[in-house]
Design a protein around this nucleic acid. Structure first.
Length: 462
RNA sequence: GGCUGGGUAGCAAAGCGGUUAUGCAGGGGCCUGCAAAGCCUUACAGACCGGUUCGACUCCGGUCCCAGCCUCCA
């Protein structure tokens, strides 16, 4: 039984799909005006893990993750860079796709762009106008009237009185209420714009997600997710727009991913304390970044540091070391999967609100079993190693050859290393341990670690 | 000020009203020419103060501290 923490009710709930034959999930993706940072990476990886699990649990899952490609920040950045908006957004969409691949993130079933959804956006705004929930201000902008939607605040646990009491003085007199938000913005000179019944303009932030999710998944769907900072106002406003326009329950389960922190502080653009994915990929493989992300629960804060990234690398090395040189038939693997409870426990962990730390701990138990059986029962060790690799695949790790992971990124070529190993083994045969240790130390300086065994000497990067 | 979360061993990170989380690091041992890897073994927790209970890290109340949202943010 799958249980998911629902922000709407602030508790874990049994997941009851609207239609078990077709699970529907929408995640708010990037606004594409810059490279993905680790916070974006976390959302991408977390929902990748979630969707992988849903796909094993249900026959058909439709996963939609949008791209917001029109927005003030995009316009400003394009102006600053002296490039067209199209060039800018295309560049960062491509970069995002590269980062995703490095992180082992599978493609969503649909990846709609806001600029391709203008018709749906206009249609939705018209519905809101007809129902009297939206109005056009004196400046021409179209606003959503929060007082005309009864459920406003139900997701973020806010109520309008408190919000107004705490809100900063807003001098914008075009709005009836300071909390009203823009649905359609009248274009200024040289801004991209589309025709609309209210004048040339562009969509406000929030409406594109209501329009795209409805377009791809219908008025009512199962799961909607994003970073925790989207709870308010973005998701609150989406509910107001969609339920206001459609007169229908919008989303059953709202999921929010915790922040990536640096020194106990949220990583964010405004604090300028962010690290981009591609920056980190210079020093760490995408799989290490991915492991780092799944090593904590998705709702907990994730403290970003080199130390913690190194921990992730060490942990992953242990798992790869366990499966190194082992393989078994599917039949043998299926047999051990039945005989032991690792797979059941692994799935149970993921069923409990996608508890990846517990799932990982089971992988380590399995690794220990593999290692201890290597001498005792080699066939069993092989089969268990295969199972370990399969379970890793459920969360998108352990899928490259162990040697590739263990040897990647060394300064010396494999042939040079092999030559050194041969020299060392000759020295060892002559009992010249001073020389053999010297060669080993020399390689260690290059980040190469030697391991002697009965089958000979192997190496891996430190 | 209002509303959310959270404070777990040296570090990271979970579950759980009573039984080993897990990984790294540490101690002891096996293995090794010595290492590395691996195995066995061991120590180290639950911010503070009360309460409930036969028994609380786990439930309840209070105190302190931290983070986040209330403005663009994943």
């Amino acid at each position: 039984m799958l249980r998911i923490y629902n922000t709407l009710n602030r508790q874990k709930e049994e997941f009851h799909p609207i239609n078990p034959d077709k699970i529907t999930i929408y995640v708010c993706g990037m606004t594409v005006y810059d490279y993905c940072h680790m916070g974006h990476a976390r959302v991408l990886v977390v929902f990748d893990v979630i969707v992988r699990h849903l796909r094993r649990r249900f026959p058909n899952v439709k996963y939609v993750r949008n791209i917001t490609d029109i927005d003030d920040k995009i316009i400003n950045r394009a102006l600053k860079n002296k490039e067209s908006i199209n060039d800018l957004t295309k560049r960062f969409i491509d970069a995002m796709h590269e980062d995703e691949r490095a992180l082992g993130v599978l493609k969503p079933d649909a990846e709609p762009k806001a600029t391709d959804a203008i018709d749906q956006i206009l249609y939705m705004i018209e519905s809101l106008m007809e129902k009297g929930i939206a109005y056009q201000g004196k400046n021409g902008d179209v606003y959503y009237s929060v007082h005309d939607f009864a459920g406003y605040g139900k997701l973020s646990g806010k109520n309008l009185d408190e919000l107004e009491a705490g809100s900063r003085v807003d001098i914008e007199t075009d709005k009836k209420n300071p909390l009203d938000f823009v649905l359609w913005k009248i274009a200024k000179a040289n801004e991209p714009s589309w025709q609309s019944p209210w004048g040339e303009g562009r969509p406000g932030w929030h409406i594109e997600c209501s329009a795209m999710s409805t377009q791809h998944l219908g008025n009512h769907f199962d799961i909607h997710g994003g970073g925790m900072d989207l709870t308010f106002p973005h998701h609150e406003n989406e509910i107001a727009q969609s339920e206001g326009a459609n007169g229908h329950a919008f989303v059953n389960t709202w999921m929010h991913v915790g922040f990536v922190n640096i020194n106990e502080e949220k990583m964010s653009k405004s604090l300028n304390n962010f690290f981009t994915v591609r920056e980190m990929l210079k020093d760490y493989s995408g799989e290490v970044l991915r492991y780092f992300i799944v090593s904590s629960h998705y709702r907990s804060p994730l403290n970003f540091s080199k130390t913690n990234l190194n921990h992730a690398k060490t942990s992953l090395t242990r798992l790869y070391t366990a499966i190194r040189g082992l393989s078994a038939s599917k039949a043998a693997m299926d047999e051990v999967s039945q005989r032991f409870d690792y797979e059941v426990r692994f799935n149970t962990a993921l069923d409990d609100d996608f508890n990846t730390p517990i799932a990982l701990s089971i992988l380590f138990e399995l690794a220990k079993m593999v290692n201890s059986q290597r001498q005792q029962d080699f066939d069993l060790a092989n089969a268990l190693a295969q199972l370990l690799k399969k379970l890793g695949g459920y969360i998108g790790i352990l899928q490259v050859e162990a040697d590739m992971f263990l040897k990647q990124g060394t300064a010396l070529s494999a042939t040079d290393i092999d030559e050194k190993i041969k020299q060392r083994n000759d020295a060892k045969d002559d009992k010249n341990f001073i020389l053999s240790d010297q060669i080993r130390d020399e390689l260690y300086e290059f980040g190469i670690l030697l391991e002697d065994s009965v089958d000979g000497t192997t190496w891996r990067r430190k």
